[in-house]
Design a protein around this nucleic acid. Structure first.
Lengths: 119, 119, 119, 119
DNA sequence: GTGGTCTAGACCACC
DNA sequence: GTGGTCTAGACCACA
């Protein structure tokens, strides 16, 4: 797993999302054991507390589950991860359209702009 | 000028952007005097300090300039405001694509998704 | 008289100084009548109140004197104007050295820097 | 770091400049963590908001950068600080020459005056 | 009246 | 603990 974090944004949700993406994409099989909190923290260059929080949030959303003294495991159902991802994508897209609206770009203009976006 | 601020996000940049949009749209003529800091603060329901900060940022970017004891004036060149707006739009769009990429959506997939976006 | 005012700095002292310079240089003869407050205000593109204040300050320093209903006149002695000018120059130079000191330039370094100053 | 602030002048730019000088002089290594906003505020006898504003200006000029919840860090490139310092020095010197010009002193006269300046 | 600056104190998210 | 943001209120110089 490659960690590409944007230090300008909150790290915890980014870790949350990337784990989510990994599961949705099948990088982790259902029920497979993930790296430990410490390993992730080192690999991502982040405070272990931050990773811990992200994992707990993922557990609460039914995407991971922990086994005391053993580690964290991917849920049995990857559909949940995909569903959460879809929701995040929709939210971010809605936020994007709202920002563009505040900048004077109507939705149609935004679509045109995005269509011709490069780089 | 109508002020539509989202209190969930930092107010200062929102004021910055809305002034920018106003100038780019020609609501303020080049060299025209704007409302005073205090007037904007009341109209937008915001603390005068926040407006002051936004205006200072606009001055630094060459979009406004202040005259002590007199007020704030739109720059002589509207193009500057449009240019800055374009830059903001491009930045936000780039950020959006980056976020989508982190969520596993390639640019082409994003374009398709946006194209069919509704509400 | 040519008025070259820097709008970024307080106007009143600038008018004060330029009148002072005019008298010290002999552009106004001792006892000669100056332009009216209004004329100066128009010529310099400044509020008449500002000119009035500058003239009053000059009167207080014995450089001008006013005659009710007639106008403002240069003092009989240009030495006073030169003296005040010298004081202003010394003050500004001291301030300049202080600023440079705060920026880490010792007086000797400043002198060297100024010596090779161009444009 | 010793803080010598002149309360007669705006504090924010003074803090900006002194940090700049500190970095340019190598008191802070590239990437090194600076004192926190609150610590600087106490040490300099100034309100934390003022320090925050100065630090933000330094960030905008690429001399510092902040990490949320962690602190402020010197930029990786000390040259930037030196460059900005040089610019400030040049600007102040130009302003000084302009003021002197307005007071009737030609550049050559100013150089002579400065050369013999004492105290 | 205006902008310019500073203080004081608060709350938030984050680490 | 840290930075980030905002509010409230004050004082000043200036027009």
């Amino acid at each position: 797993m490659v960690w590409t974090l944007n230090k300008k944004h909150p790290l915890c949700p980014q870790i949350y999302e990337q784990i989510c993406v990994g599961i949705a994409k099948g990088e982790f099989q259902p029920g497979e054991r993930l790296m430990s909190v410490r390993e992730v923290a080192v690999a991502a260059g982040v405070n272990p507390n931050t990773v811990q929080k992200a994992f707990e949030a993922l557990e609460q959303d039914g995407i991971l589950h922990s086994v005391r003294g053993s580690g964290w495991y991917a849920g049995e159902d990857t559909a949940k991860a995909r569903e959460v991802l879809q929701k995040i994508i929709a939210e971010k897209t809605a936020a994007y359209f709202n920002e563009m609206d505040a900048l004077g770009l109507a939705p149609e203009a935004v679509k045109l702009y995005v269509k011709e976006w490069n780089q």
